[in-house]
Design a protein around this nucleic acid. Sequence first.
DNA 1: AAGAAAGTTGCCGAAAAGGCATCTTTGCCT
DNA 2: AGGCAAAGATGCCTTTTCGGCAACTTTCTT
Lengths: 202, 202
Amino acid sequence: MTEGLRERKKRETRIALSWAAIRLVVERGYSNVRIEEIAAEAGVSLRTFRNYFAGKAEAIAARQVDRGLAVNAALRARPADEPLWDAIRVAVNAGFELGDSENSGQLLPDENWLAGVRLMVTEPALQGALAGAQAAVIDELTAVVAERTGTTGVYPRLVAEVVGAAQLAATHEWLRADPPRPMFELFHEVLDRITAGLPEPS
Amino acid sequence: MTEGLRERKKRETRIALSWAAIRLVVERGYSNVRIEEIAAEAGVSLRTFRNYFAGKAEAIAARQVDRGLAVNAALRARPADEPLWDAIRVAVNAGFELGDSENSGQLLPDENWLAGVRLMVTEPALQGALAGAQAAVIDELTAVVAERTGTTGVYPRLVAEVVGAAQLAATHEWLRADPPRPMFELFHEVLDRITAGLPEPS
DNA sequence: AAGAAAGTTGCCGAAAAGGCATCTTTGCCT
DNA sequence: AGGCAAAGATGCCTTTTCGGCAACTTTCTT
């Protein structure tokens, strides 16, 4: 069965709330946004907001979660005989593309927006939520890696955590880079270093 | 000048609050602990608790932060000509030892306690705070690595993030392992894999 | 010893959080 | 189509959190 109306609406509401939260926070600053306003912006009641998210921070982090889940799904969809790290590269890129398409389809973001995002991610409460969201995604990724490689023990988790670390490092660099660089490029550079065992650059 | 009375008391209060929070939450479960009770347990007012921490979750994560900062300090203290990854191994071990000494000095933890901790870390709100705390520590670690290696660009951040990932993976395994295994052993295994470029185990 | 600086505490209002009952919408079966 | 059941949205209400402010106490400096 294809996706029903109910589920589609729910997903749309979730996305609308999350974007509303991000937009308002980027514009006005984290503590100057009431969750009631986010709800209004997305056209639902405050109470409904609370049915979806535990708070502002979680709403904002939701976009990250969805992207992460997309990566996981993409990884599952890769051919089983493809080398693990090749598959991971492709899957993560697919995740970035999702982000782009939800955006204006631009590889490099608007300058004001970027500034707002930089400000936003300095918010301590946000960092926690973002990191926590990442953790949840990584739990699932661990399972995917375990399944794919048929390994047990630490290995799957370690790979998952490291992929997460790679994404974080790439994202940091992406926010820092001037002039801006596209995400996939940064990510590949990072993965190259990791699969080389992270030797000190000479 | 050595550490004054004021600073020592402050540090003690911080630690007392954090342990009180952890103990109560492990015993009763996250949502059954009022922060007022934590404050009482540590012998300060509710308002004072709030001067130290933004909430329950942050109080609990504080122990992690302190351990992380200890690792960073230890890394700074390593001889400058020591290979980076050797220095990291030693520094992280020093961090674990700190945790042990604050504990009963045991390498392997009590069974009830472990069960409580397992339960505690499943709490979503906690995961966020723990991960967020980790993120803050990693920011500092990035600086330490940059300083030590004299590198710029992504490399320092990448190393820092990966070290964080390694600790997370090791911790997960530590919580999962039955029979229990000592942390330092798990961590070394994990680091070996990383410096080998994370090849799929055959 | 005295003033300055830092820390603690109570009070208070705003906001968040979440349980519960009600009403509406969607999905499914006949 | 009709109608029932499940899921969702909303409002209401109570408890808890959150954080600014000002008064008071302790520690530090000279």
